[in-house]
């Protein structure tokens, strides 16, 4: 059922493979609720976290996932590695391979870097976010979270709000939820809407009140403040006024709608604190589920014959 040695993106996965990962993840979720949260399947394996972009939760999540599976973990970030001395990506990768690593978890600001490493190395490569392309484990954990609340994905209405152009989370989630038969809506300022999304079979809104109507799931994205200088919208206040997720706006969705955010949050920019901490928020649940999903991905890739 699971043949590729790498997890590069949701785009490359079949629905069977997605369900297989989610099913395995639910086994790991049980493990995480035990007194002894560690299981032995990756004993003797080494996971290298290679992060060329800042990240706390994804890196920690992968690190803990690997440790819970009894693997050894090495963390490399750009500021502490030889990359600052001018080493090329290819040489860094080959060095990691020569050290005997079995997995590389890679985050990079350029799209396609995990694919490049995948061709270069015969060990498993896991994409932890490549530029504005994909962040597959985030989409998998979002699917897992929605499934645990809604018991199905098919025919749900998922509203994704925010900076769709720059968001790999949005792109992976659009692939993931449409593959599994949900109706995906994106809500964003026209300036943050990439041309290609129109071909993905999704609905596009630039008005929150219309887009949130009767949604089952509200997923608001982090506004990437580092790109604010490029003036895609006038000001943060204006963004919050038009696209901020407020208690009133949440009421437009279904009564039992859940509110999700991939983190880190900018409170008062894309989401109001009352919503982030409110009864419909499953944001912390997403973090817990991320651990189970990443354990499942590492575990299943370890079983693939290389």
């Amino acid at each position: 059922m699971f043949k590729a040695k790498d997890l590069l993106g949701i785009k490359e996965l079949t629905t069977d493979e997605i369900y297989y990962i989610l099913e395995t993840a639910s086994g790991f979720k049980d493990v995480l609720q035990r007194d002894i949260k560690k299981v032995p399947p990756l004993r003797g394996k080494t996971v290298v976290n290679l992060f060329f972009e800042p990240s706390t939760r994804t890196r920690i999540s992968f690190e803990l996932a690997a440790k819970r599976l009894s693997a050894d973990v090495i963390n490399l970030s750009t500021t502490t590695s030889s990359v600052v001395k001018g080493e090329t990506l290819k040489d860094t990768a080959l060095t990691i391979k020569a050290l005997g690593a079995d997995f590389v978890v890679i985050r990079h600001s350029s799209a396609g870097v995990p694919h490049f490493l995948s061709r270069l190395l015969n060990i498993s490569v896991i994409n932890a976010g490549d530029g504005a392309n994909e962040h597959p484990t985030q989409a998998l954990l979002d699917l897992f979270t929605v499934l645990s609340y809604k018991k199905k994905i098919k025919d749900l209405t998922i509203a994704i709000i925010g900076d769709i152009t720059h968001s790999r989370v949005a792109r992976s989630n659009i692939y993931a939820f449409t593959k599994l038969g949900a109706q995906v809506r994106v809500i964003c300022p026209p300036t943050l809407m990439p041309a290609e999304v129109k071909s993905l079979g999704i609905e596009i809104y630039s008005n929150m009140e219309e887009g949130l109507k009767k949604a089952d799931v509200i997923m608001t994205l982090r506004l990437q403040l580092e790109r604010q200088s490029k003036a895609f919208f006038p000001s943060l206040e204006e963004y919050f006024y038009l696209y901020g997720l407020t208690t009133e706006r949440v009421k437009l969705a279904k009564d039992n709608a859940i509110v999700m955010h991939p983190g880190p949050m900018n409170r008062g920019v894309e989401i109001e604190s009352e919503v982030a901490d409110g009864p419909q928020s499953v944001i912390l649940e997403q973090v817990t589920n991320g651990l189970a999903v990443r354990m499942a991905v590492l575990y299943l890739l370890a079983g693939v014959k290389k």
Partner: peptide, 22 residues
């Protein structure tokens, strides 16, 4: 008891593991 995560044949088995309930 599901023993999938404790098996010693993750790399050698033909079919892939399906996790069941514990």
């Amino acid at each position: 008891l599901d023993i999938t995560f404790y098996r010693d044949d993750l790399n050698t088995k033909e079919e892939q593991p399906v996790v069941k309930r514990t």
